[in-house]
Write a protein that binds this DNA or RNA. Structure first.
Lengths: 239, 239
DNA sequence: TGCATTATGTTGCATATCGAACAGACGAAA
DNA sequence: TTTCGTCTGTTCGATATGCAACATAATGCA
């Protein structure tokens, strides 16, 4: 049984609205690589993530990929589609396995349209995604692989609270939009500096403080956006 | 006098809602470099662009800049701030001078909150911005300066209908997130191929078709997003 | 235990772009 | 016309990363 507080978006709603959505949702496990939506498709379901992490990924025609969004238990996979009929050019899948609540997209959309509370909170989440993306778009352009890797690990850790992450270098390369050999290089550098430790698909963060110093400023920017999410709402749904 | 149809967002609204917003708006000229909003500030006004182009720009702590959004007469500068209390990390200014309608941000927000029509259309515009950004974030990472320059010129031309653009290489460098000398290189290449022609702050597009071929696929993706904007609404405000 | 699979290490060359500097060219203002 | 500021051309070394190939090491399955 998943707590109704496990997803921060749901937790930020009034109990009435939360119950409305919960009644229409089904708890699901979300194993690694589960696809939450595909590019250019109207999703059948949206997902309230309750554990694990989903990645929103942009794929170029060359096949190169880069992460452009990250969703943990604070959010909803499939929220961008609420805004309009535009076809989303990204896809979204589980990057670290976890759990969630699955709701028919049409039901979520109905709530989004009819409830101001649902809409306000969903818009807040969408805004956080968009503003982070604005920052990360620049980050992808200017910052070096090592800084980006550090930033990325920190962002993931913030959303899992775990200091051990199951991630291969191959996978990290896809997230960072880099070659796998580049990841080997920069991850090796971080390891030699004692900031992380890794082995075959397992990364452990050893020194968070120094890792933050090794990351680009984009980490701080997105961290604040993340930290302030739902802050104005009434936690626990007291409203 | 600016036609009420000059801004496509306003044109997509019902006449009642359009009038509501027009009554609260002031026509303004928007000279080159006019700042429409700053980073981390709640804007005092939003702007419905009626001519010219605004750029949404991300600035890194190093001072490096890259464009992460572009707004022509289809849109609203200051729409992201409607979604929530998050502090927008980008700033926005006129990249080609033009005109617009200036409205107190609080008035626009009021309409956004109270009118479903306003909200739906604004959300559509926001979605177009976000989905384009998702694509361009990857573009910034993977595509070379020449492709990006071609894409960028095309995107600007789509929003101005003019084949002569007043832009210096220095400025293009800021938009593309590149060195000015790199822009000289790739612009020279495009000129030698007969796709563009330029001289001291003036770029002329000579061969649109071949320029599209020189641009990365991101152009097509964002073009479709742009072309389909407000398509489902009732143009002219018949609704 | 052995074997296949997968993850990581490493190397080497190619290259786009950076970063900085300087020179020339154009145009507006005096 | 002269001057000055701005825009553009060009060079050149430095470098992060791409791209490809192969070697090694760890894991899990048969």
């Amino acid at each position: 049984m998943i707590s109704s507080q496990a997803n921060l978006f749901l937790a930020s709603l009034s109990s009435k609205n939360r119950d409305f959505l919960l009644e229409r949702s089904t708890p699901v496990t979300l194993p690694l690589r589960t696809v939450l939506y595909n590019a250019e498709e109207v999703p059948s379901h949206a997902y309230f993530i309750t554990s694990g992490i989903a990645s929103v990924v942009s794929t170029m025609s060359s096949g190169a990929t880069a992460e452009v969004g990250i969703i943990g238990r604070e959010g909803i996979a499939g929220s961008l589609q609420l805004l309009g009929p535009g076809l989303v050019p990204t896809h979204c899948f589980m990057q670290l396995d976890g759990t969630g609540l699955k709701i028919p997209f049409s039901e979520l959309k109905k709530a989004f349209r009819s409830s101001e509370d649902v809409r306000d909170r969903a818009n807040e989440f969408i805004q956080e995604q968009v503003l982070s993306l604005s920052q990360l778009a620049g980050c992808n352009r200017f910052h070096e692989a090592e800084e980006r890797l550090a930033r990325w690990l920190l962002m993931v850790q913030d959303r899992t609270q775990s200091d051990v992450l199951n991630l291969t270098q191959e996978f990290l390369a896809m997230m960072l939009g880099a070659q796998r050999s580049t990841v080997t290089l920069v991850a090796g550098s971080l390891q030699r500096s004692g900031l992380i430790e890794y082995q075959r698909g397992r990364v452990k963060i050893l020194n968070r403080e120094n890792l933050e110093a090794a990351a680009c400023d984009c980490y701080q920017v997105t961290k604040h956006l993340y930290a302030n999410l739902y802050k104005q709402s009434t936690p626990g749904g007291r409203k």
